[in-house]
Write a protein that binds this DNA or RNA. Structure first.
Length: 278
DNA sequence: CGGCCAACCTGTGCGC
DNA sequence: TGCGCACAGGTTGGCC
């Protein structure tokens, strides 16, 4: 499910259930997802309470009052479901790997069929050294993402723009969908080498990336084949896609008349309009 | 070091 | 109905 807008949608959905709440019980149904669960997860979490829920790139970070932070990544197919104490409890499915129950009786269920997701725990003050977080680039919705740094980040990069934007070191949080949408809005060909993109065009991408992500968050993210919200709500940004998944359909740019095309780049589908993306 | 690709998994949809 | 294949929103480790 998850690029930045979907992860942010999930984080916001989690807030009312988890922020300020105490963990009563942790259930772990298997030893690992992409990385092992910490063996002492249960002991470290039970009795702790969540002070803040943050997001960094596609990670959700849950700070506890015990100076530990829970790090959560949804991978390709990860989902978070929250059920209130009074709600009907759906039976656990075979891909429900971790369940947190709060003292109030709410449950957070982490489901992930493909198991590319992760959940781990680290001492909050070691965050800047954390291997999963330390090399991530600027947050596109924050002030640290700006034209001059972005232009510098493209310098000397011989890879196609698609690959460079997918690289979380360039800018945090983009994935296959939002790279395609941002490049279309900017009129940039995904095959264009980063070091051959004119400075002004590179600069134009900065506000475009920001707005495409903000637009998607405002729509509750994109729902491709499942729900995105923590209570099963559907995002609807997929109805606003200009290129992603629109192979063979007409380009939406006024007066363009081109056809959206699908190619493969670094093993993944790229959608773009060869007529207006140069 | 930069860049590419395979690998990690399961589920779904489509053609035959 | 079943089978095989292509494909899916991500990340990374190993290789050149």
């Amino acid at each position: 499910m998850p690029e930045l807008p979907e992860v942010e949608t999930v984080r916001r959905g989690m807030l009312p259930y988890l922020e300020g709440q105490t963990v009563a019980r942790v259930r772990v149904n298997r030893p690992d997802l992409r990385i092992p669960f910490p063996p002492d997860l249960k002991e470290r979490l039970e009795g702790a309470h969540f002070v803040t829920l943050r997001r960094r790139s596609k990670y959700i970070l849950m700070d506890t009052d015990r100076d530990d932070t829970v790090l959560l990544h949804l991978g390709m197919s990860g989902r978070i479901t929250l059920t209130g104490a009074k709600d009907e409890r759906p039976a656990y499915g075979k891909h429900d790997h971790v369940v947190l129950e709060t003292r109030r009786g709410d449950q957070m269920i982490f489901t992930d069929p493909r198991r590319f997701g992760m959940l781990t725990l680290y001492p909050t003050d070691t965050e800047s050294d954390h291997a999963l977080l330390r090399d991530i680039g600027p947050e596109p919705l924050g002030n640290s993402f700006n034209e001059s740094d972005f232009v510098r980040a493209l310098k000397g990069r011989r890879s196609p723009m698609k690959a460079v934007l997918l690289d979380q070191k360039t800018v945090a949080g983009l994935g296959n969908i939002y790279v395609a949408e941002a490049l279309w809005r900017a009129g940039i060909n995904p095959k264009r080498r980063a070091d051959q993109l004119a400075k002004a065009r590179a600069q134009s991408l900065v506000p475009i990336i920001r707005t495409v992500l903000e637009d998607a968050i405002a729509s509750g993210g994109s729902t491709l084949r499942d729900y995105v919200g923590v209570s099963g709500e559907l995002g609807y940004f997929q109805h606003k896609f200009d290129v992603y998944g629109r192979e063979g359909e007409p380009c939406r740019r006024a007066g363009c008349g081109g056809t959206v095309t699908r190619i493969t780049q670094s093993g993944r589908s790229t959608f773009y309009c060869p007529a207006c993306q140069t």
